[in-house]
Design a protein around this nucleic acid. Structure first.
Lengths: 166, 166
DNA sequence: TATTGTTATACTCTATAACTATA
DNA sequence: TATAGTTATAGAGTATAACAATA
């Protein structure tokens, strides 16, 4: 046996990349959701720059600016995060002078959140800068598909949460 | 000043949850992408049970089963992960008898991945079990919107990656 | 020099569970 | 008992950068 046949030769190298078979993977939306999230996250942070907050903190700050005296539990529900995650974000924002918290006299367990002037300014600046991100996002999705796409995402979230699993 | 006025009273409690204003947040697809990913991930893992692999590892194992001798770099590109992340997954799979790796004699830098019989069996079992997940996903999205939804996700990923940011 | 894969390290985002204080 | 918030801890997912072996 002097030499490998052509078949043996092929059997000793990976298949060409273009011919890779993804099998059932095309059906799995999960991977695309993850990558789409990562790409959107990166677009947001790059466009807003290093001085800006991350998308998650921007969400929380916006909720506070739009709803003075919102409670921490409300923030958690509105932003789909656990209260423990919210606590960490709020302490950081308070330490950095973006918000103030004070307990309600009606129910001293409840901490109400209010944005400081600095916090309001930060939110406004970020909202302005984020328009470029929203435009890029809108163009990528396609204006005519936008509304339907967001609706589908919300339905997906709602339906899959309801689903009872045997 | 004996008592608080009705206005002062309101000023000392959070706004009602139903009246919360989300401001510009409706426009941000990012949050919905994150939550949708989490929900899809959870549906997958719950339906497949604790003995199964996580979605990410299932993706890699499926690529190996469908493409014997696929290289680690190819797996990284096809699954949208860095090669360092792939290395960790593959070592785990090898340690657990699901795959074998061997260097190509053509190019000894390249490690080719092949599924063991146990790995093939695992992949098949997971693929079968995952049909219920795919059905739930399909129903949640709506059969008529499915193709368009996946197409939009792919476009979003592709377009946003291309976007050059000032 | 460039590429494949490994390793050490670290970062993002998030949750669970036990706790305090209030109700 | 139940709820609001805090803390300590952990875990999933991922990447960067320096490195060895090979081309």
């Amino acid at each position: 046996m002097a030499e490998n046949s052509a078949t043996d030769h092929e059997a000793d190298r990976p298949p060409p990349f273009e011919t890779l078979d993804h099998g059932i993977l095309h059906e799995f939306v999960g991977m695309y959701l993850r990558v789409a999230y990562e790409v959107a996250y990166e677009d947001f942070t790059k466009r807003l720059g290093a001085e800006a907050l991350r998308p998650g903190y921007f969400t929380i700050l916006t909720l506070i600016v739009c709803n003075p005296r919102i409670s921490q539990t409300q923030i958690g529900m509105a932003s789909e995060r656990d209260k423990s995650s919210v606590t960490i974000a709020l302490r950081w924002m308070e330490d950095n002078g973006l918000i103030t918290r004070y307990p309600s006299a009606q129910d001293r367990r409840t901490h109400m959140c209010v944005a400081t002037p600095k916090g309001v300014k930060m939110q406004k600046k970020m909202e302005e800068k984020s328009l470029a991100h929203l435009t890029a996002l809108g163009n990528a999705i396609g204006p005519e598909r936008r509304a339907d796409f967001i609706k589908t995402l919300k339905d997906l979230i709602h339906e899959l949460r309801q689903a009872d699993i045997p």
